[in-house]
Design a protein around this nucleic acid. Structure first.
Length: 298
DNA sequence: CGATTTTGACCCGCGC
DNA sequence: GCGCGGGTCAAAATCG
């Protein structure tokens, strides 16, 4: 992992990465892996990736020079939180991502135990799902411009719920990783401000390698099959290749900096970060993860 | 027939 | 205490 981390830093630290990114894809973003020193996890790790594949990073290239979120919809860029943006450049799709990773301030939690606990309490009595417990799960979210809600990310998910979102005509879907001992969850909702944008929030860490990636054809970017990560891979699905934009953001502003100057530089240089930005009212999940500057920005 | 989705009910935390 | 909203459960329906 250090390898990848280095790569990221490198990328961010030097503008050279923009060269990497080839691209004409409007990308930009920032990685936020939580508190640098306290949080040992990178966002990849949050997703259960221990062996990052270069392809991923190739996908997530950042262009700070560009306007934050060249998303078609300004509203999107209005979401709150000062975080990082990151944009996976995908071959056929332009992506803008804002990622948010929450967490993990404390020591790594034993997911399995937690899960068991939850199940037990739930079944037997009343689950004490305290906020504290929940919030410990690392979270990572990103926005994707896509027509499909459920993006292929390399893992198999089972939908376990759907809820209407306040102030939004679009429902939020809840998915859980189908892997037995994996308690990773993800929420998917479409931005009410821009229906073409899908917001995905991952929670927890995968305790297993990606299932899809291992058999997917990495035509565009070879990826280790051991533990794939899982940004939505348009490359595996033709329909996704049409156009997607990813916004990766970190939902916890306090967790800036995955570590390394690059991040700082990013944030610093990022004009999107408006510390004093006003709070949003209630944008549902969006509020949680979207940088405030986005919201303010029109 | 097993896996997944749908969907209403339920639980919980939070603000008033 | 009550209502609201978010998140989850679980039975039924659907799919492959």
């Amino acid at each position: 992992m250090s390898k990848q981390a280095l790569k990221i830093e490198d990328t961010f630290g030097s503008s050279s990465f923009s060269g990497l990114m080839s691209t004409s894809y409007p990308l930009k973003g920032v990685y936020d892996f939580g508190e640098g020193d306290k949080c040992p996890l990178g966002f990849m790790e949050l997703l259960g990736v221990t062996d990052y594949s270069p392809s991923l990073f190739e996908i997530e290239q950042l262009q700070t020079s560009r306007v934050p979120f060249s998303a078609p919809n300004p509203t999107v860029s209005k979401l709150e939180s000062s975080e990082v943006l990151n944009q996976p450049a995908t071959p056929n799709s332009s992506s803008i991502s804002s990622a948010s990773s929450e967490a993990v301030n404390d020591e790594p939690v034993k997911v399995e135990e937690q899960e068991e606990d939850q199940h037990k309490t739930k079944k037997e009595l009343k689950p004490k799902k305290t906020n504290q417990n929940r919030q410990r799960e690392p979270r990572f979210a990103f926005m994707t411009k896509s027509e499909v809600d459920h993006l292929e990310d390399g893992y198999r998910w089972r939908k376990y719920g759907q809820k209407a979102v306040k102030n939004s005509p679009f429902p939020r879907s809840y998915y859980r990783c189908t892997s037995v001992s994996c308690n990773v969850k993800k929420r998917v909702e479409r931005s009410f401000t821009d229906p073409s944008i899908v917001m995905t929030t991952y929670e927890g860490q995968h305790t297993h390698p990606s299932t899809v990636l291992s058999r997917a054809s990495f035509v565009e970017a070879p990826t280790p099959t051991t533990t794939g990560f899982a940004m939505p891979m348009q490359r595996t699905l033709p329909q996704y290749q049409q156009h997607q934009q990813h916004f990766v953001y970190n939902s916890s502003p306090s967790n800036f900096g995955y570590s390394g100057p690059s991040n700082a530089a990013l944030l610093h240089g990022s004009r999107f970060c408006t510390p004093g930005s006003a709070m949003l009212k209630d944008h549902g999940l969006l509020q949680d993860i979207v940088p405030s500057h986005m919201l303010n920005e029109e």
